[in-house]
Amino acid sequence: SQHQEELPPPPLPPGWEEKVDNLGRTYYVNHNNRTTQWHRPSLMDVSSE
Rank of each mutant, 00 (worst) to 15 (best):
G15W: 04
N22V: 06
D21K: 00
W16H: 00
L7W: 02
P13Y: 03
Q37E: 02
P9R: 13
E6S: 08
T26D: 04
T26V: 10
P11Q: 14
W38E: 09
E18H: 06
V46K: 09
P41Q: 02
Q4P: 06
Q37S: 15
L23I: 08
V46D: 13
P8A: 11
K19Y: 05
V29C: 09
P8G: 09
R40T: 03
Q37H: 00
S1P: 01
N32V: 05
T35H: 12
T36D: 01
N30G: 04
E6I: 15
P11E: 09
N32K: 15
Q37Y: 01
T35A: 11
G15E: 01
L43C: 14
G24T: 03
L43A: 13
S48T: 15
R40L: 06
P13Q: 06
N30L: 01
Q37F: 01
P13L: 08
E18T: 09
N32Y: 07
K19E: 05
L43H: 10
N33E: 07
H3P: 05
P9Q: 13
R40D: 02
E6K: 12
N22R: 12
N32H: 12
D45N: 14
E5S: 15
N32A: 12
P11D: 12
T36H: 06
V20D: 08
G15C: 07
T36R: 05
D45E: 14
N33W: 14
N22C: 08
V29M: 10
D21S: 11
L43T: 12
G24V: 00
N22D: 10
R40F: 02
Q4V: 06
S47G: 10
G24R: 05
E5L: 03
L7V: 11
Y27K: 05
L12P: 00
E5R: 15
D21A: 03
N33H: 11
E5W: 00
Y28Q: 01
G15Y: 11
N32W: 05
S47E: 11
L7F: 14
V20I: 05
P10G: 10
D21N: 03
S1N: 02
E17P: 00
P14K: 15
L7Y: 09
L43D: 12
R34S: 12
P8H: 10
H39S: 15
H3L: 07
E18V: 08
E49G: 05
L23T: 13
S48Y: 06
T26R: 09
D45K: 13
P41H: 01
Y27T: 08
P11Y: 05
R25D: 14
R40H: 07
W38Y: 15
K19G: 02
V46Q: 08
L7S: 12
E18P: 05
S47V: 08
H31I: 13
Q37G: 02
D45V: 08
V46N: 12
P14E: 14
K19R: 06
M44R: 13
T36A: 05
W16D: 01
G24K: 08
T26Q: 06
